[in-house]
Design a protein around this nucleic acid. Structure first.
Lengths: 191, 191, 191, 191
DNA sequence: AATGAATGAGAGTTCATTCAT
DNA sequence: AATGAATGAACTCTCATTCAT
């Protein structure tokens, strides 16, 4: 009796991320995933109930890692919220640059079912960001009539550049731009 | 694929938009589209080469309408670029609120093939927006080190709120927030 | 547009009867049925919801034909119930000899679900036979404490011989034996 | 297939009898048998070569027990063949009532392969019954032109009632009816 | 032009069987 | 001996596409 191997699961996940980021869901065959991962077709079904669950697992786990990373950044003591803001967006951009495939997968993910786990994770991320803004407002550093909307802008902006920008490779640069745009806007200040 | 009856074509398109915005590509059957549109299955093939082309037609036509609308706004004489900025974003938000399904479809559209018609249309939109910013910079009203990125933020921000914000119904309000965030940022100005 | 062809359905049914009588359910592949019938695999699914429904259709239709045949025999005016008895069993035996495969299929049919159509048909047959016996009792020709059981013996006896007897080919002979056994028994009458 | 632990084998057999009598062959998964029996899946393969052999073992062993039981009845000295007849049928009915699942399995057992062990056992049973009738004929108590057929009627009649009769619980009553029908028939004797 | 019956390649999934532990 | 993770052949069923009518 072989023992259930957590590495095997990870192997399947990594392979699936690659394939699903290259092709849309319906063009990726489970046979391909299995073969590319070097496991039997049935093995995939030991670790994932079906193709759809495999797919959503990728989204969920990708988001979960992102949330964790941001949570860690936020936990650090802020000197000022403005500076902290940049750090968080940097973390987000860094993650995006290092996992560009996950952004692609998140983009094509199907209509969110309110009950789905991955959608809950997405909302968790959104609420985390919202909280940051609200703290900044409370501290008198930010002014925003719709923090819940601005919270959604973070990832949207980074994603837009990741998906359609031609090969961003410097997360710091990207983060700086997003951060300065969100904080200061592009309108020239009258002196 | 002859286009005899333009009304019939529109009927199919409208039906397809609805179905594709409710289900991911692979879960929408051509039978469903035909039945919901009240035409025979074969009829769809008279107007569209195949399922994929039908799908991309929706994206393309949706984007084309959007580009047209923005182009019209831009053509209007600007009083100031700042004010014009709001008008354009209002047009974009208005379109989004009135065609939420198209946004859903655009979101899930498959990996862009650089040669695809719809992707060209997407780039066209992006370039249009970039041009607006560059004009503003030239006029001394805007300052932006990466107008090509900011151009991508427009739709991304609106889309983020459309998709995940709970039922935005006032395009003016949405546009005002996006516009003020992009223009002035959320950082409190020191007096 | 081709018209739905009732002959095509019959073709599939006939082919399926043959294959299911040669192999147990799980060894018959739908591909084989389709290929043997000379139709596409998908065509079978136009006429039957799935493999199981195809299978039960055979049983149902076989039984329905049998019931019809017996009903016709019974409708004929009886001279005496004893004589009539033979005629019915002859009909039954005749049917069995001409459709030996249906008996094989009926034998292997899965556990009857009380709600299944084919089982209702089976009960209909049983009740028909029971009625015959009861009429005979009423007419003073038969004496039987359990007509509902005897009704079940009819087909069971014929089936037993059909399935395990080595190639009965004369239905009259088979019917005569069943009939005389049921009517007179095998015990030698003391003179 | 080594038979180390005879109890474990019996456990598997008993579990399999239950499951196979509830579902047709192809719906019973070996996993289910193993789990229901509380043993590992691989363990079943230690005691039985494969699923088919497990299945046929049930049939074979069920028939073997039945044959043994009848042989014992027959071995007893007959007072008269008529009386002895009843005793044998009673044994058969008794067995049926106490092992209804085995009757269900025997019914659905696949097409007999003349070379299969279980079919040989079935023939053995048939021949045993035939012999009883022939002895009766030789003793002048019975008259039957086709003892080989009547031999097949025994079990068929009991089975018919077992399978489709609504819950027979009294084997004596069932045996009495089968016996009297076979011996004396249902036709009213003219005085 | 319009249809929907027919098709069959191809996909997801199952499950009997194996075998490392 | 016992196990259950791993396997992949084989299965059912779907559905985009075709084409006779």
């Amino acid at each position: 009796m072989r023992l259930r191997d957590e590495n095997k699961r990870k192997l399947i996940v990594q392979t699936a991320i690659r394939l699903f980021s290259e092709q849309p869901f319906h063009k990726v065959r489970l046979d391909d995933v299995a073969e590319a991962a070097g496991v039997g077709k049935g093995t995939v079904y030991i670790y994932f109930k079906n193709k759809e669950e495999l797919y959503y697992s990728l989204v969920y786990e990708g988001l979960a890692e992102l949330v964790e990373r941001c949570r860690a950044k936020i936990a650090e003591q802020p000197t000022s919220y403005r500076e902290n803001f940049l750090v968080i967006i940097e973390g987000l951009a860094d993650h995006a640059v290092h996992h560009p495939q996950l952004f692609e997968i998140m983009r094509t993910v199907a209509i969110p079912d309110a009950s789905s786990m991955w959608d809950a994770k997405r909302r968790e991320f959104s609420e985390l960001m919202e909280e940051v803004i609200r703290h900044g407002i409370a501290a008198g550093e930010f002014a925003d009539p719709h923090p819940e909307r601005t919270a959604k802008y973070f990832m949207a902006m980074i994603r837009a550049v990741m998906l359609y920008g031609s090969g961003v490779t410097d997360p710091k640069d990207l983060a700086a731009h997003v951060s300065s745009t969100l904080l200061g806007g592009i309108a020239k200040k009258s002196p």
